[in-house]
C-alpha cells in the first residue's frame, strides 16, 4: 500500500481555488503509551509537512501528538499553471517521505 495519497482535481481553471487532500499512513505514536511489558513506546510522529506547487511552498504544517494517527489534511491553493504538487513530510525517526500528484490547468 502506498505511504500516502494526494487528491487534487484532474483539471482546474487558471486562477481557480482548488482543494488539495492529503492522507499520510503513519501511526503517529504519541510517546504516552506503554507496551504489554510496561515499557514506554517511543514517540514517533510526523512533525513537519510541506507541500510545494511547482516548487513554491503553498502549505506548511508543524504537527504535535494531538494529530490523529494516519494524519489527514485538506487545504486550498490557487491554480497558476500545469505541473505537480509535491508533499514532503518528516517523522521523529528521521524518515522523510514524499508523494506527488499531477495537475492540469486549463485556460
Amino acid at each position: 500500500m502506498a505511504k500516502a495519497r494526494i487528491k487534487v482535481p484532474e483539471v482546474v481553471k487558471r486562477g481557480a481555488v482548488f482543494e488539495v487532500r492529503l492522507l499520510i499512513r503513519h501511526p503517529m505514536e504519541t510517546g504516552f503509551r506503554y507496551n504489554n511489558v510496561g515499557q514506554k513506546i517511543p514517540k514517533n510522529i510526523v512533525h513537519t509537512v510541506r507541500c510545494m506547487y511547482n516548487g513554491a511552498e503553498v502549505f506548511h504544517a508543524e504537527l504535535f501528538p494531538g494529530i490523529a494517527a494516519n494524519p489527514y489534511f485538506s487545504f486550498f491553493t490557487t491554480a497558476e499553471g500545469s505541473g505537480e504538487l509535491e508533499c514532503v513530510w518528516t517523522d521523529d525517526a528521521g524518515v522523510t517521505t514524499s508523494e506527488r500528484a499531477a495537475l492540469t490547468v486549463s485556460e
Partner: peptide
C-alpha cells in the same frame, strides 16, 4: 498543530 498559509492559498481553510 501550527499551519502556515500564504496569499496563494486563495481560501484560508484547513481540515484535519
Amino acid at each position: 498543530a501550527r499551519f502556515s498559509l500564504g496569499p496563494r492559498a486563495g481560501r484560508a481553510e484547513v481540515h484535519t
